[in-house]
Design a binder for these strands. Sequence first.
DNA 1: TAGAAACCTTGGAGCCGCTACAGTGTCAAA
DNA 2: TTTGACACTGTAGCGGCTCCAAGGTTTCTA
Lengths: 141, 141
Amino acid sequence: MQIKELALATGVDVETIRYYEKQGLMPAPARRDNGYRDYAVAHLERLSFIRHCRALDMPLGDVNRLLGFVDKPDRNCGDVDLLVDDQLARVRARLKSMRALEKQLLRLRARCLGSHEGAHCGILEELVSAAHGESCACHPG
Amino acid sequence: MQIKELALATGVDVETIRYYEKQGLMPAPARRDNGYRDYAVAHLERLSFIRHCRALDMPLGDVNRLLGFVDKPDRNCGDVDLLVDDQLARVRARLKSMRALEKQLLRLRARCLGSHEGAHCGILEELVSAAHGESCACHPG
DNA sequence: TAGAAACCTTGGAGCCGCTACAGTGTCAAA
DNA sequence: TTTGACACTGTAGCGGCTCCAAGGTTTCTA
């Protein structure tokens, strides 16, 4: 399988596949006489695994560690759930701050009363007032 | 005001302040005889403004555009609310995908039944099965 | 048989928003 | 006088790609 076929089969960009190889996530494939990469089914599966983990927003370092467990299934894999827990915690922390962010933006947005002259723009006033340390709709309290 | 005083007053790292100057977000301050930067109150306000926008997760490019409106308040600022709307849309899109992500991770986590032998690890099985295109707890349907 | 188009290779730079150096200079207190 | 804290510039690194240049190979079409 040439690199483009692998790319099409997995939906992963050709450059990204080469990047994964350089980063040590994908094993170097066999080469044809002309130097072209020649992938086997195992590569396709490994790439799918990587993309699945990435869809879960796991850092490539974590993906690499998971691949280590996959490669040596005899090894005790007690860290696998820790790794998933960590990822879950990261996602939840991010969710929390994003929700707060949404609220702040909504309030800021509500300050726009239709006047679009800079001197009377509620949004700009709001943002500038923050610079004066006044209480603002975005960061109340 | 020396750079460290500005940093303390705003909670912004010294290196970050210099970075903002290099990026054209902060105007170059006066220099003392020894070459040290000498900031005025206007710099403090501008830096607060920038950090407030960054707290709303706006890209620096957008912050720069807002600063343009602040600098020239006569200019019609109809784009300001568009800019905020864009940011809100970005945040909401991200929220949506993060919520989905949390669900997927929770389901994946539930696959861990206490067995930590790699060969029988529910989480690894799940992730590997995805590589085979089987339906998986993470990406159902 | 020529040439164009589509593929492949490598290496390096660019993106964002910092952060962390290295190497050097300046200043104030003990 | 020496120590320590500050300042300066310039460059490199982070993650996870993405894009580009400059070249080689293969396949299709005229």
